[in-house]
């Protein structure tokens, strides 16, 4: 029987420890994220305090303090573009919620061919927004556009242009966005409606609840979390709207459809006031971030009910 040797320090295992292996896997994405998300953000914030202009690379960059922001917030154009954005976001989402929920409600009553209808209705969502913007300019064309022809069928007049008339153009972009994105709200509402157990309706029916009351006490509370999520997505997207509207109206006529992002693009890449545009970008970012955060808090409260 030999005496046990004094315990040698346990040899280090070969290869990676769990932790370093984790870093090894996550590292590349973290680096990528830093390079294409975090760095541009920080750089943008820095630029917003300068008079940097991207088309004049050689000129010395001066710090401007908060003067970019001061100018922005006192600029009539900026407030107007934000008002256009608010108009666009509010109306497009209101319409999409109404139509999307309505369509989902109809499609949730599984009828013959409801699957086919769902597929057909969802099609616009699959197109590229820029393509949608471009071909709707043809649909809106006063002489040969089908839109005017259809309106003419009902009202007898085709003497108007959706996108050249300053009164109608803001509604044109709402219309096209609604056409394109109603299916998105519909899909999510459909998922919500399908998640309501059948027997709840039966219980309510036996309890003598009218269809109206069933809707308010069973359907709506159960679909609301889904609907709110869809509205959050659409709200953020439409606040950032650029491509479709840029193709359709480019902000015109005049500036009646000049959304915040289109105004920003003009300042940054047409007037080349990069620092000034960067400051607007920061303001837009903070706004959408703030709204989204408040909204998510409300959403969580609704979900918990």
């Amino acid at each position: 029987m030999s005496t046990p040797k004094p315990q040698a320090p346990r040899p280090r295992r070969r290869g990676f420890s769990d932790r370093s292996l984790a870093w090894f896997f996550v590292g590349p994405s973290v680096l990528l994220l830093l390079a294409i998300n975090i760095f541009p953000l920080v750089w943008n914030i820095y630029l917003s305090f300068t008079n940097y202009a991207a088309n004049r690379p050689g000129t010395p960059v001066r710090g401007m303090g908060t003067r970019n922001y001061e100018r922005l917030l006192s600029q009539e154009d900026v407030w107007e573009s934000l008002q256009h954005t608010a108009h666009f976001v509010t109306w497009s989402i209101a319409l999409q919620v109404l139509l999307g929920f309505g369509l989902a409600w109809l499609l949730s009553r599984k009828f013959r061919g409801s699957g086919l209808w769902t597929t057909l209705i969802v099609l616009p969502m699959m197109l590229s927004p820029a393509v949608v913007g471009t071909f709707w300019t043809y649909l809106f064309q006063p002489q040969i556009g089908i839109f005017n022809a259809i309106v003419g069928l009902f009202t007898g007049t085709t003497e108007f242009s959706m996108i050249a008339n300053p009164n109608l153009a803001p509604w044109a972009i709402v219309l096209v966005d609604t056409w394109m994105w109603t299916p998105f709200i519909m899909l999510i509402c459909l998922a919500g409606l399908n998640s309501v157990p059948r027997d709840l309706y039966e219980a309510a029916e036996i309890d003598g609840a009218s269809s109206w009351r069933q809707f308010w006490t069973v359907t709506l509370p159960m679909v609301l979390p889904f609907l709110m999520l869809a509205v959050l997505f659409r709200g953020i997207e439409n606040f950032k709207m650029f491509d479709m509207v840029n193709e359709l109206t480019s902000g015109g006529p005049g500036s009646v459809t000049e959304l915040a992002n289109i105004y920003l693009k003009r300042e940054a890449f047409e007037k080349w006031r990069t620092g000034y545009a960067a400051a607007l970008a920061v303001i837009l970012f903070v706004t959408v971030f703030g709204f989204a955060n408040i909204y998510v808090k409300v959403w969580n409260a609704v979900k918990q009910r």
Partner: peptide
């Protein structure tokens, strides 16, 4: 009155409101 196997209570209502539900029928 129907008692379901899987309870089928109205999930977002309180117990009181669940019990009162049929009494609030038109």
């Amino acid at each position: 009155a129907f008692v379901f196997q899987q309870y089928s209570l109205y999930p977002h209502l309180t117990v009181f409101e669940n019990l009162a539900f049929p009494l609030r029928a038109p």
